[in-house]
Design a protein around this nucleic acid. Structure first.
Ligand SMILES: [Mn+2]
Ligand SMILES: [Mn+2]
Ligand SMILES: [Mn+2]
Ligand SMILES: [Mn+2]
Lengths: 218, 218
DNA sequence: TAATTTTGTTAGTTTAGTCTAACTTTGTAA
DNA sequence: TTACAAAGTTAGACTAAACTAACAAAATTA
């Protein structure tokens, strides 16, 4: 239906809108590593296909149709990640690059089967919500670990800005989704935390790490 | 490494060489539904990349390097088909279109995992051999069912020219790989056969069907 | 062998998606 | 409030992969 390039612009627009509200040509250009004039001309093309509202010098906005198309691509990405982890035994740090390619596969039957075999999961291996077949996505309301206090007991619900390096760091500390931890202390000078979970009785986590972990308070 | 278009030319060249020996620009043009001048210019490009031996007005030939690259794409195609049938529950008539897309995915780890989960299969769901990691492919020596005689007992080993319609026809008669059948009679005027297998005590198969079934004699 | 058909090549055009260079608009800071 | 910087657009060029039209070579048929 849409080209690989078009799909990548739609997906980037969608997730940047969710992160920051307004998306400018310059932001999109940096995100995709594509020069601004190229982005401008693609926006005109997507506007002609009624996927984007485009007005010269104004922030970019997906149309409802564009939002749905983007969500359906992200659905394929996240279902794939979940399948790779749950059914094929990959680690959560190994699946993103494969999913980047698989998300462009055109086969409703293939993704319907994945969904069925997985038991219709609501979240991917990084805790991000999987949009439904109509492109609707429910955002759970998690807190950053960094916003929690000494004594709080929390459950790890999702990771944000999931780079391979960060995920491997979490692996090395045996931190995974669903893990419960208690906050033993918060250092006031650098906002680092000392936490306690499983066999890790006193693990230090930097503020940078705590900002990237989303948790549910218990 | 190579573009989608380049990979599709390599794959077509490979399987046409196996089928017919010599491959001409015209044959390739018809197979890919791409006009001859486009094929000629792509052959020059692939020759520059030492994947094809190209000489004006001469039949086309893959280089050793080209043969290996093509076999590795076919390996990904056939592993995918096998995975879809064995691990996801698709029918053998449903998997080709999905595999056409998946064969272009760049991820050695992904296909290595498939291979492992499948137990290193040697054949795909249609009985075609799966090339190994180095691009080597063993062709088993099967006979066509149409070349067998009255009284022969044979086992279905592979199907040739696997169209969805043909595979659905085989489904409707409960004919599948590994099935053993006995040839009850051969009609001399149209070369159709009456065969006997499982609960099918007297099933008539046309010559066209018998030519498309490869068997092992028992 | 000569004529005709089929096959293949060359030359030039098109579209998608990228780029750089030059210019314009908008936002910010003196 | 003017000057400068940042962001955005326009114009024009390039590459990959397709096409058509015209011509050339090879194969087939008469
Ligand atoms: Mn991902
Ligand atoms: Mn994810
Ligand atoms: Mn196939
Ligand atoms: Mn097959």
């Amino acid at each position: 239906m849409y080209s690989l390039a078009e799909e990548n612009y739609l997906k980037a627009l969608f997730s940047m809108s969710n992160d920051k509200g307004e998306v400018n040509v310059n932001d999109l250009s940096k995100r995709l590593d594509i020069k601004m004039p190229t982005v401008t001309s693609m926006m005109k093309k997507l506007a002609a296909k009624t996927l984007v509202h485009y007005e010269r010098y104004k922030p970019l906005k997906l149309t409802e149709k564009g939002r749905i198309e983007a969500a359906l691509i992200i659905r394929k990405h996240r279902l794939t990640e979940m399948y790779l982890v749950e059914k094929m035994g990959f680690g959560w740090e190994q699946v993103h690059e494969i999913a980047e390619q698989m998300e462009h596969i055109q086969s409703p039957e293939f993704f319907a089967k994945m969904d069925e075999l997985l038991g219709y999961p609501k979240f991917d291996p990084h805790g991000s919500p999987i949009p439904d077949k109509k492109g609707r996505m429910i955002w759970a309301t998690y807190s950053k670990l960094s916003e929690c206090r000494q004594g709080d007991i929390v459950k790890i619900a999702a990771v944000v800005n999931t780079s391979d390096e960060f995920l491997r760091f979490l692996n090395s500390r045996e931190i995974h989704l669903g893990l419960e931890m208690k906050i033993k202390s918060v250092e006031s000078f650098d906002n680092s935390m000392v936490v306690n979970y499983d066999k890790h009785l006193s693990e230090m986590l930097s503020h940078t790490v705590c900002e990237r972990l989303l948790v549910e308070k218990i």
